[in-house]
Design a protein around this nucleic acid. Structure first.
Lengths: 239, 239
DNA sequence: CGAAGCATTGAAGTGCGTCAACAATCGTGG
DNA sequence: CCACGATTGTTGACGCACTTCAATGCTTCG
């Protein structure tokens, strides 16, 4: 189950057998969680981090009137709140968008890793820095791209992130989000998110039905999004 | 000169004398840089990181048509591209917004720190995680807040960040950005940024002239912004 | 089978963008 | 120290991408 996570790591850097042993020993407990649960509330004290083994989750921040912004989506293999290890409490909620299987990683084990494995520490530091890079790309989207370009960009990013962990093939992947949730990723209203999906369909770029997304014209979609995967750091790095 | 940086750290966590010695030994070279220079270009290989000792810098991403989004502003004491230590190349540019004094920190010294000082490594990991939290708050702004609320939020955040390092007092601070640059932080056009500044003035919330910003009504500004400083992690944490 | 959530559509409104002009300020060289 | 071009701030008129409100059908699932 932790295979997806290891795939993610190994795409970016070499992991020694010993390091892999440490990683495989992270998860103290596996748990199943229903869709639409808020797993972690902003501000609450943490002593474990969550590794997502199966399903979709999101980080969410909200305003007083209830408007929400999803700051990142998470898929299988993601260490959803690794940053919580150093922060001790989060500035946002973490919630499930589908039924999920999660692994609970006690902070003591991460602490032990940082004490004994400097290189592995750098690797995980690197991984949280990739999350930050995803945030920045999303800021570029929210600040400068049009609604349709933003949505195209999201679909391109998710395709690559899912492909890494073996959950995308033939230019398609399972996509369990409602249009309301897509809207909350993109800073749009549901109505406009709907119209934007339709426009992507109309242009022959995607198919989306029954929670299944197919990219019909990858070039076209990436062009519309000005998608450049550099920010995902998908190549080997000597850390 | 590195005092500002130490202030930033010590506000968040205890720093031992030995750790402080390591930190004080980071900067190999100090340099002066003019305003409006792009210090680091996205993609270029890095072997040093930049500590900002004086002045203002920004991280910037752009689209093909030249539209830019600033993903974060930096002030004295900020380790501007500490994330570059693990990423090895950046996904964005780093540029000066004013004349700056910077300290160059060779990656070997950071590498040595991570090998020998696990706790200090966690502290700096923590600091890059705060940057990510700032990114998330900015995503909330860009996605959900109105132009005026967004701008109010930016001014509130900068006030706190500058106060920490002793560069804000009497509800005022030097603010060298042009309105164009403010617009690039907030995902607005210059014209609308201008109108938004004027509206903040009209409401008696701020004064802004000669690159000097005064907050006339802190409560009012924070209320308008729904500003909650939790995401800046300004309290002591046991790392 | 009924209720609740979700996708879709239409009509009307608005916050912000665009275009264009001009004023104020700044920096620089003569 | 002044002249002058360039940058920055400001204003007005107009347009549009996206929002708001409201209604309807479709799906899902207890």
């Amino acid at each position: 189950m932790i295979t997806a996570h290891l795939k993610k790591l190994k795409l970016r850097t070499r992991i020694s057998p010993e390091e892999e042993r440490v990683i495989r020993d992270f998860v103290a407990e596996t748990r199943r969680v229903r869709a639409d649960e808020t797993l972690i509330h902003a501000g609450e004290e943490l002593n474990t981090s969550v590794m997502l083994l199966h399903g979709w989750m999101a980080r969410s921040k909200d305003l007083q009137n209830g408007d929400r912004q999803f700051t990142e989506l998470h898929v299988a293999g993601d260490f959803v709140d690794l940053h919580g290890f150093t922060l001790k409490r989060l500035d946002h909620d973490i919630l499930t968008l589908s039924e999920c299987t999660i692994g609970l990683v006690p902070h003591e084990r991460l602490q032990a890793m940082t004490d004994a494995y400097p290189r592995l520490t750098r690797v995980y530091w690197f991984m949280t820095n990739i999350d930050a890079a995803i945030h920045r790309e999303s800021a570029l989207s929210l600040g400068q791209r049009s609604a349709i370009s933003r949505m195209a960009h999201l679909f391109c990013e998710l395709y690559l992130r899912l492909e890494i962990v073996g959950r995308a093939m033939d230019s398609a992947y399972e996509f369990p989000l409602t249009q309301r949730e897509v809207a909350e990723c993109l800073g749009l209203t549901v109505v406009h998110a709907n119209r934007t999906v339709q426009e992507l369909r109309r242009r022959g770029l995607i198919e989306l039905e029954n929670r299944h997304l197919t990219i019909l014209d990858r070039r076209g979609l990436e062009g519309l999004a000005e998608f450049d995967p550099g920010y995902l750091y998908l190549t080997q790095t000597a850390i």
